[in-house]
Design a protein around this nucleic acid. Sequence first.
DNA 1: CCTTTTTGTTTGATATAGTAAACAATGTTT
DNA 2: AAACATTGTTTACTATATCAAACAAAAAGG
Lengths: 195, 195
Amino acid sequence: MNNRADNIPKAPAIGVNVKRQRLEQKMSLDKLADASGVSKAMLSQIESAKVNPTIATMWKIAHALKVDFNLLLKGKGDRVRKFEINRHEDLTTLDADEEGVHINVLSPITMAEDLELYILTFQPGSILTSSPHYPDTEEFLTVLEGNIEVSAGKNVTVLKKNDVLIYQCDVNHSIKNLSPKESKVYLVVRFAKKK
Amino acid sequence: MNNRADNIPKAPAIGVNVKRQRLEQKMSLDKLADASGVSKAMLSQIESAKVNPTIATMWKIAHALKVDFNLLLKGKGDRVRKFEINRHEDLTTLDADEEGVHINVLSPITMAEDLELYILTFQPGSILTSSPHYPDTEEFLTVLEGNIEVSAGKNVTVLKKNDVLIYQCDVNHSIKNLSPKESKVYLVVRFAKKK
DNA sequence: CCTTTTTGTTTGATATAGTAAACAATGTTT
DNA sequence: AAACATTGTTTACTATATCAAACAAAAAGG
């Protein structure tokens, strides 16, 4: 087995991705050019895959489009891995001290690494308050159902279904259900790298 | 607030990353050049940040180094993201090649972290297949709604609501909706931490 | 209908990414 | 030591990414 430049690696299809993103945001080439600092001509050629753009150029474009860089390179997803099943009935569920808040711990005992996954269920009017966690701990909150008010430190915002909030939780923070119905939240907690 | 090409986006420091990766694997420039198809001269200039490489070139290099593309772009970055709201309407959604599969990308906007979040929606009978990706990347799949059959390599299992599956990305795999109704899945992807 | 504006594409010129080969260092041999 | 690899850098050249401006094609007025 040689390792000559044998198998042509691959060629990401950035052009279509840029175009899709741009149109999704209803921007013209002019507008994108103005916002990104990349010439309209370049953008046109990139979208029609006539050229092979530079990292710096793509970076500017991604920034102007306010999308993640890799998103422009993908076009397809990648999903797959090992295989460890954790049935709902095997997962620990617990009720918070507060009334009407139900916590479903998704992260299995076996992993307990730097990631924790939860699904929180809030009855109408219920609220969950948390004291600061370890520094540099981040929470990624996704509203699955209902309306939620989140406050962390002096920041406050109201989120509706499918909104995502990323915040550092080394301050006092609370999550409140504003909806007259049950609200549900998916919560990913990422602890700072230890060691 | 203008949106002229005001704030200089940023410039990723790919050079040092390439060099670090290369040295970590104890490769010479010659060897890398041979494996990637990129000239030794280019590699030298890239590592010393004398040039501004092309996406295609970097892609070849990433492939030859067997590392994820974004890994080479990281290192810099906007660490501070205390309170970042991503509204549903601002999030990128994309449909897979397969029929009836809808992907909602929750994580983008600023960052090339090591975490990616998705909500996948499957119409009845729809299926999403993915090809393998880089090792040591883990996925955490939570069934929000419906019934899902996941197969990864020789493993197959059926998941119901609130079940969690963890796997690593090595093999082809697919996610299929078994329910006569729409099924929904929350997906957390964590990329390997380099050391 | 005939202007304007707004869209995306295509020129001509230039800067620079990319290559191959020569170079200058180091290290290995005998 | 001389002779030879092996490293990374720099030259001399070619290919092409990028730009500003001209261009074409609609869309929008008027």
